Simulated scan of single mutants.
Amino acid sequence: MSNQTTRRALLAGAGAAGLTAALAGCAAYGDTGGGAAPATADQGAGATGSGATGGGTGAQGGGFARTGDIPVGGGKVFEDQKIVVTQPAAGTFKCFTAVCTHAGCVVGDVSGGTINCPCHGSKFKVTDGSVADGPAKKPLAAVAITVDGDAIRKA
């Protein structure tokens, strides 16, 4: 009888953990924070700092990307971190969530001045994450970053 109780407890615990994860994902989907959007860094505008914590490795100084990896007028999707970094004008870097606000797909690429979702064709402006073409109705949420030298880090 104790084996059944143990199995039952294990399955119940696994089910509860799965449900919790699913509900957490649903709660986060499309959430823009409800308050003010986080600031984005504009290199040259004084929005850099030496005390920021880095998000990952790979770039000089511990950032997750190098400024030279982000094309002017375009951007790069970091699928593993679910963010996209753009450089709308030389030296200006913006960061947004890479999760499309329409159906939760990860955006596929940045081209033609827009961040493009492969699932249903939504397009978002590289300048501010606003919707350029639907079906998405909400903008991509801004993600705070800092630029220190050539390193881009999450703020």
Rank of each mutant, 00 (worst) to 15 (best):
C117G: 08
T127D: 12
K125T: 14
G13C: 07
A27I: 04
V84L: 04
G108K: 05
A52T: 07
C119F: 06
A12M: 13
L23S: 02
T40W: 06
V85Q: 01
G35E: 03
A90I: 00
C95D: 03
T114K: 11
A65H: 00
A52S: 01
A52H: 07
T57I: 06
G108D: 10
G108E: 14
C117D: 14
G61H: 05
C117N: 05
L23P: 06
A27S: 10
T97K: 01
V110W: 05
F64W: 00
A16T: 12
T20E: 06
V84N: 02
F96Q: 12
Y29E: 13
P38G: 07
V77F: 01
Q87S: 12
K82W: 01
A28L: 13
G62K: 09
Y29S: 15
C95H: 01
G56K: 03
S122E: 15
I83N: 02
T32V: 15
T97E: 12
G75R: 01
K76S: 04
T57E: 11
A16S: 11
C100D: 11
C95I: 02
C117R: 10
K94N: 13
G91A: 09
G56D: 14
I115L: 11
Y29T: 02
E79A: 09
A47N: 11
T86A: 04
V77I: 10
T40A: 09
P118C: 11
K82Y: 04
P71N: 04
V72C: 06
S50Y: 05
A12Y: 14
L23E: 00
A41P: 01
V106G: 06
V77D: 00
T67V: 00
V85H: 05
G18D: 07
D80K: 07
A12L: 15
A14R: 13
T32K: 13
S50H: 05
V99A: 02
G74P: 00
D109P: 07
G108I: 11
K125Q: 12
L23A: 05
A16G: 13
A37W: 09
V126F: 12
G44T: 03
C105L: 09
F64K: 02
N116T: 11
P118T: 13
A12K: 10
T67I: 09
G55T: 06
A37H: 07
S50F: 08
A14E: 14
G68F: 02
K82G: 02
G62F: 05
A21D: 08
I115T: 10
A14G: 12
P118L: 12
K82Q: 06
F64D: 04
V106M: 08
G18V: 15
A24R: 04
F96E: 02
I115E: 08
V72W: 08
G13P: 10
D31W: 15
G68Y: 09
P38K: 10
T20G: 13
A98V: 02
A22W: 08
G62P: 04
A98H: 08
F96C: 03
A17T: 13
G75L: 03
H120W: 07
G30R: 06
G15I: 15
